[in-house]
Design a protein around this nucleic acid. Sequence first.
DNA 1: CTCGATCCCTGGACGC
DNA 2: TGCGTCCAGGGATCGA
Length: 306
Amino acid sequence: MPELPEVETVARGLQKSVAGRRILSVTLRKTDFIDDPAALERELPGRRIARVERFGKFMLLQLASQQGLSEPREAAAATVSEALLVHLGMTGNLSLHFANQPLAKHTHVTLVLDDGRELRYIDPRRFGRMAYLSGETLATELTRFGADPLLVSEEEFAKRISGSRARIKALLLDQSVLRGVGNIYADESLWAACIHPAKSGARLQPQEASRLRKELQKILRQAIRMRGSTIIDFVDAEGLPGDYQQRHKVYGREGKNCFRCGARIKRMMVAGRSSHYCPSCQRAGRGIAGPGKKTKRKSRARTSKK
DNA sequence: CTCGATCCCTGGACGC
DNA sequence: TGCGTCCAGGGATCGA
């Protein structure tokens, strides 16, 4: 499940391999995860990819300005006003293939490049998102997101966390608070900072908030160094899996012993997400918000829709 | 403002 | 072997 470190890994790989390449043509298959499929077919062919960057859990394939069609040396420096936004969702992957390699199942978008290769978007579940955005629309879209967790200052972080009574886990997952943190790294950083996932953000002590930011950044940086976590099938732009799952302290370790105190790792639902924590290291205390009970999902009888 | 519930989607695990 | 059921979860949306 691609979160900040996984997306960063893919973006770095693509920056190396496709920056400067021109898109010759676009083939779309399933398009229900694309904002405006026609816009991709209309705007991308003939355009050069200036650079690839991560923005939260998105990848931004920035397009060189139209004018610079003839070898724009300034491509990388040009102002970003047009980009292809790619969100990998749960199972998405954007990777480079030779044109003669067979199409993997669930390949929904193919960008044919000018060097005989293709950028392919593969996503079984289609929880991802793709959109061509430009100008004001692009700028507006990006302002919906909060601070980058790797760049956020201690003051800014404290302000964003302590200003809300929502549970800290929910705040970490909220992309308008911080952009890029998902379920794995939220759980890992809360464990590292000894904070219960259901504790209210407003009730974190200043030193707790400070420690949480520090641990979160440390974990994200380390995870990037290890090319992210591969739980089921994540691979980077070159098809390599990540290694950080070997460092997970709580995620996926329910019932196992805490590496710090030996207690049994528990799991509870917080903010609708499965949350792994050590009941001994991460004390509930009085700062706990909400019901915090394990919510059993009742089987929904889906009415056959037409 | 914050919450849970529901929906989107498919593959994999599991029970029978 | 095969079918049904449950589960995973990022994000949007809706009602409480």
